[in-house]
Amino acid sequence: MNTNKNKLTSGMTPLHRIAKWPEQKWPWLLLALASSGLVAAALIMQHVQGLNPCVQCIYQRTAMIGVALFAWLGVLAPQNAAIRVVAYVGWIASAWAGLSAANHHLWLQRDANPLFNSCAAFPNFPSWAPLHEWFPSVFAVTGICGDDGWRLMGLNMPEWMQIIFFILLSIAAITLIVRLLYLRKI
Rank of each mutant, 00 (worst) to 15 (best):
65 I>F: 03
63 A>Y: 07
112 A>W: 08
77 A>Q: 14
121 A>N: 14
28 W>E: 06
152 L>C: 02
56 Q>P: 09
137 S>W: 12
72 W>R: 13
169 L>E: 08
43 L>R: 00
104 H>Q: 12
95 A>T: 08
167 I>S: 01
107 W>C: 05
8 L>K: 15
87 A>D: 04
144 I>L: 07
109 Q>W: 01
73 L>V: 13
74 G>K: 09
94 S>Q: 08
87 A>L: 01
120 A>W: 07
40 A>N: 06
79 Q>C: 07
158 P>E: 11
50 G>V: 04
85 V>Q: 09
97 A>Y: 12
55 V>W: 01
126 P>A: 13
82 A>Q: 14
58 I>P: 00
107 W>Q: 09
177 I>W: 11
8 L>C: 04
162 Q>R: 15
48 V>L: 04
86 V>L: 11
54 C>D: 15
186 I>A: 13
143 G>V: 09
82 A>T: 15
114 P>C: 11
139 F>G: 10
36 S>Q: 05
74 G>P: 12
89 V>M: 00
69 L>M: 13
127 S>P: 03
142 T>V: 13
179 R>E: 15
14 P>E: 03
96 W>F: 14
31 L>A: 09
15 L>T: 00
145 C>I: 01
36 S>H: 05
178 V>D: 07
73 L>I: 13
181 L>R: 15
97 A>N: 13
153 M>N: 04
61 R>I: 00
